[in-house]
Design a protein around this nucleic acid. Sequence first.
DNA 1: CCAAGAAAAGGGATTAATCCCCGGCCAATC
DNA 2: GATTGGCCGGGGATTAATCCCTTTTCTTGG
Lengths: 212, 212
Amino acid sequence: MKISIGIIDDHQLFLKSLALMLESFKTYDVVIEALNGQDLQQKLTPHNTPEMMLIDVNMPIMDGIATAAWLHKNHPTIKLVALSMNETDDAILGMLKAGCCAYLLKDTHPNTLEKALQEIHEQGFYNADAANVNFRRLLMREQEQAALHITPKERAFLQHACSDMTYKQIAQKMGITEKTVEGYREALFAKMHVQSRVGLCLEAIRKGIVQL
Amino acid sequence: MKISIGIIDDHQLFLKSLALMLESFKTYDVVIEALNGQDLQQKLTPHNTPEMMLIDVNMPIMDGIATAAWLHKNHPTIKLVALSMNETDDAILGMLKAGCCAYLLKDTHPNTLEKALQEIHEQGFYNADAANVNFRRLLMREQEQAALHITPKERAFLQHACSDMTYKQIAQKMGITEKTVEGYREALFAKMHVQSRVGLCLEAIRKGIVQL
DNA sequence: CCAAGAAAAGGGATTAATCCCCGGCCAATC
DNA sequence: GATTGGCCGGGGATTAATCCCTTTTCTTGG
């Protein structure tokens, strides 16, 4: 009896070729190929539910973390495996917290992948080097993030602050007074331990709160 | 007679599975699999020279552009195909300028890949949507980049400007007067078309002049 | 309904940032 | 020898940013 497995990745070329590779292992049956979380929700039916699921982290529309969380909640029996090319702390921690039982990098060798999948199917988990890397530090950063506690309004302001605009223009664009903007600024300065708008922007980008 | 082809990609999983896929097309023979440009130089021998080469853009050690340029110079008969997941203008232009005759995205469908490879092998070129996208704009940006011409001192200042420091502190750290710092600032504002330090920092990061 | 507390806004003052114009110094190039 | 261009410095003015403290408005739980 083959093990049924699903793959979610927005890069069609990788998706299809990885499916081909899994099939070549002879013990896996790829029953679902989705381009993102939304696509998956359509293709996942009661009659077509795999035992395992490989999930790419970086995806448009509905990313890896959201997809993993949805699967973990609505289909808790499916074993989730995160697949990514970058090993940033946030991504790893996010996927594991979302319910993934393993985190694999895209530059692992096929043999390692096969071994990992087998282990996950039998034991329910797999500890790669990537996931082992300093778990304590991950948790510390997590707490730090939680303590940050940025409100939606502040987040919106932060997005605007990372631009060539002046505070007056930002206030106008957000439909509030300059003074209110100033309030957000001061609050964020204190929370993020900076004393200038430049420092604020750089920190926001570093922490991934604002994307370039 | 099968067409001999080589693949260069730092992600082993993608490399191996893409090789599997190409083999499945029945008309291709994957003779080289390399993890980066340096790896390729070792594996490429007179007795083992493929007719075509798929090159990933994002790689450590020796990236796609450098690899493509090297191949184009030392092995001009090999048809080069750029392969990437992002379609930033710089990357596309860089690869095409380095001698690639096509630029494919990793999220293209396998069927499209097969068709493209066939076309490249027969006609020597392939125009995907990605490459077609406004070539004139790419060239304009290229000229703009060349015109940027940032001096070493300006670059050093830019590095310091991307911090929580004030101009006075930066001047102190660089061992020059505030006024001199101001000179760099104004020059860079003009060159990078911004009107605030925040905008300057963001542009510098976007253009890769300053790393976070 | 009222009080606690957050969010929004304002007053007023200080400092940093931005802008424009100016001159001198030095090295490489023509 | 002259010119160009990068580098360094200054005066003076205006605007944006920063800081601190108070008031008003709006929620929200009791």
